[in-house]
Design a protein around this nucleic acid. Structure first.
Lengths: 149, 149
DNA sequence: TTAAGTGCAAATATTTTGCAATGAG
DNA sequence: CTCATTGCAAAATATTTGCACTTAA
């Protein structure tokens, strides 16, 4: 979806939002990072390219991006949200390994067919049993990374 | 583990902590609620029984309880932590359904043997591939509950 | 031209900390 | 008795909002 800037920008514009310089820079930072950045991480990176930017704009842009589904927001338990650009190439089943000590985050989506089948049927099951309209899921494993253990 | 007050209290004392009145009341509230309460939820419930309590004490007690493994802390994305007493009777695989609108939380642990097998092997796999020492996991599905959809 | 977008400062919300007073063991 | 625990007030942290100025389309 957002591998190349034009696509990324076009998609944003298609939702009726103006493509301003701060937003361009935020999208570029997200596209390059492809990691789980906090609002402040993004602010600091954007600041280097475009120092006039305010943290408010980062939050407001992230909210838009989250709402239109271009960005996914995660809460890994350290009381600050982290954001990741959604990519078409990324698997829809996606798990995070979070280090309890250094907060390093590893993404994993290399699932077997069997695992995917189970995930899908579980979701189906949960939707039905609880009459929930499930929009997305968030799976994470928490522990200590190789450096911290 | 904490079905009965004495057990619950004894276990707490066994970790070398003094069993004070505020802590007793907090444990009782947690034991009765068996839901996912925020610090403030707990504060309000404790306040009814023991109005002299301060919110600080709630936070400090919850930190202790989380550290000694009697309580599990969750971040469901609404920027406030929620706490749940860990019970021996509760399944070790435990998933939450979170309503994006009203924040209602449903716990689910009625898994098939096949599902449990997959979860266990996945965890094993992730530990090895990333040399992570996995302590716990947190799986949640997010969507709209029957009332909100 | 003009509504959408911006930065700043101030507000909010949640959680944490310093400190003197208190109370469990 | 003595040190862990407490409540209060203040601080810290992350995020949101009001408002006048700016800018993309």
């Amino acid at each position: 979806m957002c591998e190349r800037p034009h696509r990324c920008h076009a998609r944003f514009r298609n939702f009726g939002y103006k493509l301003t310089l701060p937003r361009k820079v935020i999208l570029d930072v997200l596209r390059k990072a492809k990691k789980h950045l906090s609002a402040e991480d993004i602010y600091l990176k954007v600041y280097k390219i475009y120092p006039h930017v305010g943290l408010t704009t980062i939050y407001r842009t992230l909210e838009i991006l989250t709402n239109i589904g271009m960005v996914k927001r995660y809460d890994f338990g350290d009381r600050r949200a982290r954001y990741e650009l959604v990519s078409e190439t990324r698997e829809k089943h996606h798990i995070h390994l979070v280090c309890l000590n250094c907060c390093k985050i590893i993404g994993y989506s290399d699932f077997t067919d069997e695992e995917i089948k189970i995930f899908d049927s579980l979701k189906e099951n949960l939707s039905e049993k609880n009459s929930f309209d499930i929009k997305y899921h968030q799976f994470s494993y928490h522990g200590l990374c190789n450096k911290c253990k």
